[in-house]
Amino acid sequence: MDIETLLKNTSRSLYLSVRALPRSMRPAFGIAYLLCRYADTIADTPVLPSSRRLYWIERFPHLLLEQDPAEAARLAQEISGGTENPYEAELVKNLMPCLELLNNISSEQRENITDVVSAVCEGMKTDLSFFPNESAPEPKAFDTPAELERYCRLMGGKPGLFWSRLIYGTADIHMPEEEFYELGQHIGDALQIVNILRDLPKDLRIGRCYFPRTDLEKAGLTAAELLDSANSARFEPVKRKWIAWGLANLKSGKKYFPQLPKSQPGQRAAVAWPILWTADTFFKVYREPDILNPSKRVKISRSVIYSTMLVTPLLLASNTLFCNWLDKKLRKFK
């Protein structure tokens, strides 16, 4: 199996970041991403009822450890035909080759990979057990902000921790280990909440409202009312609150990025790009007045991606320039 081809075809901007990584980091990061993507395919497949998807999501971390070929084949058989994406279909057929690649990685990195896959699966268990099934007549909301923050930590923060552990094991970081890891989790939290914000209309239509009932009540809304895009203006205070939460987490990048050695430009680029692109995406969400409209797809353009890459050499050469560039993006939120 060609891992780079699978990565390229199942991701977009992330693949660019992987290509920039030092070669020593690429296998662990690539396998972790593909295994998390495999779990995501299980959680989203329309060919299984939610109860069966929940069973396989609960089993998936154990499958990585036990590596039973018969069980892996049974899983692939049950979810085959569940995606129209030919590259995801190819991934579904290649679980055992992925696990063989996992076995070739150091024991420390294997443990790091199984930890992040387990955390992501825990978040997916929430999707499948807390929320109603996709055909429910109206969405269900989390009850409290703490539930949304926990979900962001599982789906974004823990991958940020995985990333930070990889970096700490391959680079000369002068910051205390736990402080560096916590900053990485904050950045991951920001990446997750911006995804939740931009995917809001789609998630609502499969029964999921990640924004807490307590916040909606303050705005005079229910989760069901978010299905009507005419309520976008009423939702604005909730949107602004969670943008502010995400930006506060994203600011951790100003302490995190300068820790990365200038002798590792690829590693610095792979950290700088997601942070800057997330700031750009937050601004797109911030400026979108019709955020509940499912026809409005909020995403940054390829021109934004490539223009960021164009100025990368300047940003990588100077911690001050990077922090100033990020500050410039964050000052737009007024």
Results as ranks from 00 to 15, higher is better:
A136Y: 10
A39M: 08
A119P: 04
V117P: 00
P49F: 03
Y33K: 01
A141D: 10
T41R: 00
R52M: 07
C98F: 00
V92I: 10
I105H: 04
S50R: 13
T83H: 02
R110Q: 15
K140C: 06
A119V: 12
I105C: 08
L91M: 03
D68W: 08
F142I: 07
A119Q: 12
L99T: 13
P97S: 00
T126K: 13
R59P: 13
D127P: 11
L101R: 01
P86G: 08
A146H: 14
Q67W: 09
N104D: 10
I79D: 01
L75D: 07
H62V: 07
E147I: 09
S106C: 11
A141I: 06
N103W: 11
V92L: 07
M124F: 05
Y87P: 00
E88I: 07
R59C: 13
S106P: 15
V92G: 02
R37A: 09
Y33T: 00
D44F: 10
P145E: 08
I105T: 07
R150S: 11
E90C: 05
I113K: 00
S50N: 13
Q109F: 14
V116M: 07
V117F: 01
G81K: 05
L148G: 05
I79T: 05
L63R: 11
D68A: 14
S50D: 14
I42A: 00
P137T: 03
Y55P: 15
M124R: 01
F60Y: 09
S129T: 12
L48P: 01
D143P: 05
I113N: 02
V116E: 06
I79Y: 00
I42F: 04
D115N: 10
M96F: 03
A119Y: 05
G123M: 02
I57K: 00
I79H: 02
P69A: 15
I105D: 04
L64Y: 09
T45G: 00
N94Q: 15
E71P: 03
P137Y: 05
S107K: 13
A43Q: 08
R59I: 05
P145R: 08
H62C: 09
L91R: 01
P86I: 07
G81L: 08
R37Q: 08
T41I: 14
S106K: 08
G81P: 15
L35Q: 02
A73W: 04
E100D: 10
E88F: 02
F142G: 08
E100Q: 12
A73P: 06
D143M: 12
L54R: 02
A39F: 04
E147W: 11
E138N: 09
M124D: 04
E111D: 10
P137R: 10
A39K: 02
C98Y: 01
A73Y: 06
